[in-house]
Design a protein around this nucleic acid. Structure first.
Lengths: 203, 203
DNA sequence: ACAATTATCGACCAGTTGGTCATTATTTGG
DNA sequence: CCAAATAATGACCAACTGGTCGATAATTGT
């Protein structure tokens, strides 16, 4: 690896990281390429050496950041012991905390969502976003299914509806935490997950 | 009321309604004043007779729309019968459906959230938004409290955490429904609410 | 009917910013 | 050390759009 390549890697990382910060702080439209360049310590033109245009940079940030969060949240789920209820609880807590630890950049998700929602132009965001959710939903649904088989959970439990509800509550709680910094979201989240799982149990 | 006033009322309604549509479709920044004017069937200058600038128009839409939804969702909650669990279930369903019925304009909430989250400039969005959530949270917390008193719900239940969890799951489920139109959100929501409320019950 | 008042309009202007490209700086191979 | 190749830069341009304002139209009171 020569000097050019080292430089390229370092600069690419600096650009992505700075772009995440600036997009979080200002939103997609208000974030200026010049801002991102300054934050990354590079010239404005350099950014266009790495990304075709602003939208391509944004999509790169989207993939980089969601990969990072997905890796952080799911990594220790497999290694956990205990019955399905206990492991589901641990998975929910760990996923929640993985995102909560990055609360100050959570606002960029509003931009991701907005990009994903526009059905005309931005199909790739939607696909990629649903893919990410589906991974988590599948993981959760697997635990719910397992819990039903081992008679920890109620036999009539709707696996998919439960998984979707749990995933949704993660997003919703994060939104509340982000809007209201006085809200003790980790505690509330843990108690809420306990309640939901209590409702899932076989009597 | 003379002709001027009638015209003003009609035009103001047309402008707000068109603004909601355009902001939903394109997002705050990409929505052009000219687009909104055309959709409302008025000249561009006319909009500035009613609203100082684009941001003032957006805030007016925010208040108008959230008032509308709040009115729709909570109106029949008081009139319901049954025990606390039954009434809580009905309140959750009715609130969910009130927003779900307007799913195609749900995306404007992403813009509202983004506006509310920026702590520097937009304190009034944050205050107004938290106020709206607090009304719903208080309503739910009241039912939870009542359920605890009447021994329908578990005595150790954390009222605030439960209420926040339920409110959050509304937002989260709506987001999922909006991103994925194949998701049968009303059914999943109802089943999830059932599960949560089951977990709240005294054994 | 007519002039004063009120409301509407859209061409225009000024400020902003994504993206380009000629110039400069750095690295490489020999 | 030098020239070719590669990378970085930021002044500049073109496009876009929020907001203004002089001109026009509708309504009112008399």
């Amino acid at each position: 690896m020569n000097k050019w390549e080292k430089n390229k890697q370092a600069k690419q990382a600096a650009i992505l990281s700075s772009a995440l910060t600036i997009f979080s702080e200002k939103g997609y439209t208000a974030a200026k390429i010049a801002d991102i360049a300054r934050a990354a310590g590079v010239g404005k033109g350099t950014i266009y050496e790495y990304y075709r245009n602003k939208e391509a940079l944004f999509f790169a940030v989207f993939q980089w950041y969601t990969d990072f969060l997905a890796g952080n949240s799911m990594v220790d789920a497999a290694s956990l012991g205990g019955n399905a209820a206990r492991r589901l609880n641990a998975l929910m807590r760990s996923t929640f905390m993985a995102v909560y630890d990055q609360l100050d950049t959570f606002s960029v998700f509003l931009e991701f969502w907005a990009a994903a929602g526009n059905p005309a132009i931005r199909e790739r965001y939607r696909v990629s976003m649903l893919n990410m959710y589906e991974k988590l939903t599948t993981l959760i649904a697997g635990l719910v299914e397992e819990g039903k088989r081992s008679r920890v959970f109620h036999p009539d439990l709707d696996v998919h509806a439960t998984a979707m509800g749990l995933v949704s509550s993660l997003d919703g709680l994060m939104l509340q935490a982000w809007m209201d910094r006085t809200f003790d979201a980790p505690t509330a989240a843990n108690r809420f997950f306990d309640t939901v799982i209590r409702g899932m149990r076989a009597k």
